[in-house]
Computed example of a mutant assay.
Amino acid sequence: MGDARMKLHWSPRSPFVRKVMIVLHETGLLGQVDCVRSVVAVHMTPHPAVMADNPLGKIPTLVTGEGLALFDSRVICEYLDLRAGTGLLPSEPGPRMAQLRWQALGDGLTDILLVWRTELTRPAGAWEAVTDGWRSKVRASLDLLEAEAAALAETPFGLGHVAVLCALGQLDFRWPDCGWRARAPQLAAWEAAQATRPSVAATMVMDDEGGAGDVTAGQLWF
């Protein structure tokens, strides 16, 4: 697929960028990518450099060595896995669907957490009917993952695991006192074991602007 270097629009605070970074570690492709710090947010003017590569103005955006811009962490991660042949997304239907299903759940959970945080920072205040619904969905997602913790542990590491870990990492980053581990102890044990994996340990979400990560602590108690 070419030897030219790739470019990744990147932020250490983005859980979806973290998905890509974990896959870059897992595939051994990290050394072939230049990470470009790109600040984007729904309340900000679109980043011109990101917009030049991605009309949606979102990160992560990966530009391949051939100059093809790829959008969305799912597409980027699958491209990297195919490029490296690591099998994080298996070809066999059963294992593949398992990973895609967990990826959809993890990504969906992360989406809720991101829009929830934005809602909580509105000057007019959060719409409780909406945030109450999100709380129910987060709890239900954790309950399902708790029920499937043994399956997560028994299944070879893949893109679904990556997505779930990034969602749990977002909970820890923005809601560090929410108590999700007490609600899902088997899931917590699985997460603790995965936290020692080099690709996971090397990609912890961080705030590089000096602010506190727990800006909404206390809003998502279980």
Rank of each mutant, 00 (worst) to 15 (best):
D3V: 15
A4V: 08
K7G: 08
K7M: 02
W10H: 14
W10D: 09
W10T: 03
S11M: 08
S14G: 12
F16G: 01
V17A: 06
K19A: 10
V23Q: 00
V23Y: 00
L24M: 11
L24C: 05
L29N: 01
L29F: 06
G31L: 01
G31T: 00
V33T: 12
V40D: 04
A41M: 01
P46G: 02
H47W: 04
A49G: 06
N54M: 14
L56K: 09
T61Y: 02
L62H: 07
A69W: 04
F71K: 11
D72S: 06
V75Q: 04
V75T: 06
L82A: 09
G87K: 10
L88A: 00
E92L: 11
G94P: 03
P95F: 05
P95W: 01
R96V: 10
M97N: 10
L114W: 00
L114H: 07
L114P: 05
V115Q: 15
R122E: 13
G125R: 15
V130G: 04
W134S: 03
W134T: 04
R135F: 04
L142H: 03
D143N: 15
A147K: 12
E148L: 08
A150M: 10
A153S: 13
E154H: 10
G158M: 05
L159I: 02
G160D: 07
L168T: 08
G169F: 10
D172S: 11
W180C: 07
A182H: 02
R183K: 10
A193I: 07
S199P: 01
V200I: 12
M206I: 01
D207Q: 09
D208N: 13
G210H: 08
G211K: 03
V215H: 06
V215G: 15
A217T: 11
G218S: 13
Q219R: 14
L220P: 14
